[in-house]
Design a protein around this nucleic acid. Structure first.
Length: 378
RNA sequence: GUGCCUAUAGUUUAGCGGUAAAACGCCGGGUUGUGGUCCCGGUAUCUUGAGUUCAACUCUCAAUAGGCACC
């Protein structure tokens, strides 16, 4: 299922292959985010042309709309969106966290946690729903995903130890129930469990050991990039990654900026997802490699300090109004090669939908290339 | 030619006798398991001149510009 094919001598970085029902994927890899069954602004064929091996969708959003039953009826999410690559779904655990911290009505949380599961209100129409670990897995099975994630509780940082400890226990209990439920399924997907524990070392190690004992197909590192500094995140990875089985993939959820990914790979992480390339693209931020990127990335992966190997253009800045250079000369997309920065600047200024599309493609191409460069350098 | 109305940020408008508020725009920053155009800053001394007043963007007069009506 997962095989490490090469291990860096200088760092914890490793290259591997993850076998899924929809293809063998080279690790480390990055999953573009398609929360509701679409990478925002892109069609499935465009995502495919980017050479995307796997995307991330979200149980929480899809169960509310259009509903797991409908997608099952459509033949699963793959067929529904005509996607032939792999799909991993987030379990909804993060939404428990992000909705619990409330947006407007601070009094009423949208979420009620209990031992059995979590009751929450739909962000769409306020209707009540109940999610249990069993149901979260069943929904992911109905969606037909390749990799399902156990329902977990993610805690915003900074957090008190007792709260973190409770989340670790609940997450472990739910993971066990997910495992039991999976045992009754005919063809379960790959199932990953989520390590919690915040910035507390003993809780992190406890969480890892409990989950590893249950023997999952992979391990997510959750509860990071939720309010702590990058340095604190790296420290957690330093002691947590060695605690996870060598022969199972490690997935750092929701991370991150290119340098965050590089630092995490150095510490032994194999999988990533993040909204940064797509969301920032929609807001006019363009990622671009510097000329010496390959060297810096290779140096970083042989243990040296990570230098600055890319830049982010804010295409809305006035200085691009008359910049007729290509958006990206190195792109495999003709549009990015042939259209100018000034034109893209204009599209953003007048809010043409095409602007977000071009920027999204540019950024995803950047992220996927980043992973390729990383793999090559290990 | 006569009468009336208006004149505040780039734009459209608020405003009060005591040193200007909003929206949009513009300039810049932000965005980490996505509630799809979001969040945070910055951006004017109130058409000009004279007068009244302790104090005027706010009152008076004139000029200028625009609008409306009538001859």
């Amino acid at each position: 299922m997962f095989k490490v094919i090469k291990h860096s001598k200088q760092t914890q970085a490793r290259r591997g292959k993850l076998k899924t029902a929809h293809g063998v994927i080279a690790t480390p890899f990055f999953m573009p985010v398609a929360t509701r069954g679409a990478v925002k602004h892109l069609s499935t064929s465009e995502v495919k042309v980017l050479n995307t091996p796997i995307i991330l969708a979200n149980t929480y959003h899809l169960m509310l709309k259009p509903g797991a039953a409908l997608i099952k009826k459509a033949g699963g999410l793959h067929r529904f969106m005509n996607w032939r690559g792999a799909i991993l779904t987030d379990s909804g655990g993060f939404q428990i966290f992000s909705l619990a911290k409330d947006k407007t009505n601070s009094e009423k949380s949208l979420v009620k946690l209990s031992g059995r599961g979590v009751e929450f209100r739909s962000y769409l129409d306020g209707s009540k729903h109940f999610l249990t670990p069993e149901r979260a897995l069943q929904i992911q099975v109905d969606l037909g995903v390749d990799i399902a994630v156990c329902l977990d509780e993610c805690v915003a940082l900074p957090a008190k130890r007792e709260y973190l400890a409770k989340a670790v226990d609940l997450t472990a209990d739910w993971a066990k129930r997910t495992k039991n439920y999976a045992a009754k399924l005919k063809q379960p997907p790959l199932i990953f469990a989520v390590v919690q524990g915040g910035l507390n070392k003993s809780l992190r190690l406890k969480s890892a050991r409990e989950l590893v004992a249950l023997d999952f197909d992979g391990y997510n590192i959750g509860g990071l990039s939720v309010g702590e500094t990058a340095k604190e995140m790296y420290q957690v990875l330093d002691y947590l990654a060695p605690e996870l089985p060598e022969d199972k993939p490690r997935y750092l959820m929701g991370v991150g900026y290119p340098e965050n990914i590089l630092e995490a790979v150095k510490r032994g992480v194999d999988m990533f997802d993040c909204v940064i390339p797509t969301r920032e693209g929609r807001h006019g931020r363009l990622f671009r490699f510097k000329a010496n990127a390959d060297k810096i990335i290779a140096a970083a992966l042989s243990g040296r300090k990570v230098g600055n190997f890319y830049e982010v253009l804010n295409i809305s800045n006035a200085k691009f109004a008359r910049d007729f250079k290509a958006i990206n000369l190195h792109s495999t997309f003709n549009d990015l090669k042939n259209l100018s920065l000034a034109y893209l600047h204009h599209l953003f200024k007048v809010k043409e939908p095409l602007a977000a599309r071009l920027a999204t493609i540019n950024n995803l191409e950047f992220y996927l290339r980043l992973m390729k460069k990383i793999r090559k350098s290990i």
